[in-house]
Write a protein that binds this DNA or RNA. Structure first.
Length: 203
DNA sequence: CACCAGGAATGTA
DNA sequence: TACATTCATGGT
């Protein structure tokens, strides 16, 4: 945090651009923002955020950034819009599945119930489900990604192997604080991006 | 030209 | 459980 400062994840669209909100955690998310983040989590899978963001902006510009619009849009049309996010055929199809599932989610549901419903969607794995829980629904969930695993191995923080073991390690050794988890993960990503550029990264 | 980014599903041993 | 393969855009 001293090195990079707050990252303000998750960025949301505003006036045609993606905007970050460093240190602004008290404002509750609108339903539209929750959905946008949920969709963004799927689009960014194994794709640069820049390209995923372009896909998001295409959806927005086409007026297709809502569950019902996505559900009734022709598959070919969605494919064209999300093409920058890579794997566009898969993602167009899974976007519809996720949009359908989203209609059955509520901010009032317990975290475990939300996680179970999310994991039931084809195309949503552990990391994507937890990123949605943390960043869209603001639940105190420590999400694990490839950078986090690299950080653990490089500094020998733990010897967890599975996704669940890693998450358990962080959640048991840090205060269960949603804002802390939010920044912690974003800072790990920031570190990983810097580190892989300056060090060649053999992990 | 090669390499990879804010993964997940499917199949095999 | 541990790997391998498929998916298939853009930036560097």
């Amino acid at each position: 945090m001293e090195e990079y400062g707050p990252q303000g994840w998750w960025p949301v669209l505003q006036r045609g651009e993606l905007k970050y909100f460093p240190r602004d955690y008290s404002i509750p998310r609108t339903d539209a923002q929750r959905f946008e983040i949920t969709i963004g989590a799927l689009l960014t899978q194994n794709a640069s955020w820049k390209n995923a963001a372009q896909a998001l902006m295409n959806l927005k510009a086409a007026g297709t950034l809502s569950p019902r619009k996505i559900l009734k849009a022709p598959k070919a049309r969605l494919e064209k819009l999300v093409r920058p996010a890579r794997y566009y055929r898969q993602k167009a199809e899974r976007l519809k599945l996720l949009a359908k599932a989203y209609l059955g989610l509520s901010p009032k549901m317990p975290t475990e119930e939300l996680r179970k419903k999310l994991l039931g969607v084809k195309g949503v794995g552990n990391e994507t489900a937890d990123s949605i829980l943390l960043y869209a629904f603001k639940r105190p969930v420590f999400m694990i990604d490839a950078y986090t695993v690299r950080l653990c191995r490089k500094h020998k923080l733990c010897r967890a192997k599975t996704y669940g073991e890693h998450r358990k390690f962080f959640e048991e050794n840090l205060p269960k604080d949603r804002e802390l988890f939010n920044e912690f993960h974003a800072l790990i990503v920031r570190w990983g991006q810097d580190y892989s550029l300056c060090a060649g990264d053999i992990l």
